[in-house]
Nucleic acid binder design. Structure first.
Lengths: 206, 206
DNA sequence: CGACACATGTAACACGTTACATGATTTG
DNA sequence: CAAATCATGTAACGTGTTACATGTGTCG
């Protein structure tokens, strides 16, 4: 739903056409989340289907416009404005966060026999630290470095968000590694968990 | 792709049927990411379509099984094993992370006029801190508190991941708030928080 | 017996994503 | 002029998700 809401919110600036929308989106979010042009159009079609936007062809007076000759602009409707308003008013639900692939992967890895969890963590940490360095360099050298326009500030904030997220991930990996070492030192979880009988019976095989 | 890969990986423990798979998944990931049973079957059908699993009806000897009479079990294929292996070997790409709805929302909010960014941040922080407290309480009182089984350890690790993520989010919100205040104090951009905008022309000073 | 959980699916739809077709405009 | 970019879409597919149909077993 992110792209959908984002494009709709951008239309509060005024009617825009497809390529404009993609440019506006990428100015704010940077190269991290590239947006295929085709997706802009499919999303606009769905927004129109739901009554949040309407398209306006060319222009009437033909002299006032000057900027968007022949372009198909999309304009937000009052219903769409309400949707945007609730989007900005309602906090992102942390009660049911999006599935974290890394957390799932590790959670399953520690319950399967024969998985090199240590290596997994190590590889992941290397990859995440590399990404972190990329973010830091971008934040130091790019247009986000010293934002003069609001769009650059936005891009810089997104970069910060990625940095904070990557740092948290690394901390979690370290923390997990330590916990696993302690558990191994305690001699726990050595027995490979054979398929355990879900919720009915407990069967121990060796 | 998370659910798909996770279910496939779980089948390395041995052939299982639908409900079992859901139970195994939820034992490891807890109540955070509930899994609709229907999705298990759709996912299994797609895994079979791609040659990663095959279903086995009932059982041959009819005496060895005992556990799964009449159940439709799914067994991972060699191809599926390869898929799981690469999943565990390849780190999760941080080069193109999943879209962060909160980051996108804030990035757009700071570029639109008339958005109460301060309130947005405040509401989000409240919501995230509430979720954080829930996680902490779960980690202190639930089965994840002192894990004896590997599944409980997994669930505890997932909880840690959520905690680390929520903490990072709060830090980012504070950081963002501070940056916006500084920018507003410098008279840059349009004033975000207060609607008392009496400023005329702003000069950019760094 | 009736309610409820178990168990297996199917149908339909959501958004995200890419590949492709098509034309207009710009530019080297 | 040729190539590239702009611009607008459409078609097709992916996973995720839910609602529903259907039947079996179990338990108060």
């Amino acid at each position: 739903m992110s792209v959908r809401q984002a494009l709709l919110a951008l239309l509060e600036q005024g009617p825009m056409y497809g390529y404009q929308l993609r440019a506006e989106f990428e100015q704010r979010t940077g190269a991290t989340w590239p947006l295929n042009v085709g997706q802009v159009y499919t999303t606009l079609a769905r927004l129109e289907r739901d009554g949040f936007v309407e398209h306006v062809l060319g222009e009437g007076p033909a002299d006032e416009a000057g900027e968007d000759r022949g372009h198909v602009r999309y304009r937000i409707t009052p219903v769409g404005r309400g949707e945007v308003s609730t989007w900005f008013t309602t906090p992102v639900s942390r009660t049911q966060p999006p599935r974290d692939e890394l957390a799932i992967k590790l959670a399953i890895a520690v319950t399967l026999p024969g998985i090199d969890v240590g290596g997994l963590i190590q590889r992941q940490r290397t990859a995440t630290m590399a990404a972190l360095q990329d973010y830091t360099r971008l934040n130091r050298t790019g247009r986000a470095a010293r934002p003069d326009h609001a769009e650059d500030l936005a891009w810089s904030l997104v970069l910060d968000s990625l940095v904070f997220g990557a740092e948290a991930e690394i901390r979690w990996l370290d923390h997990t590694e330590a916990r696993l070492r302690r558990a191994a030192a305690d001699g726990r979880f050595h027995t490979p968990a054979r398929p355990t009988t879900t919720n009915t019976e407990q069967e121990v095989r060796s």
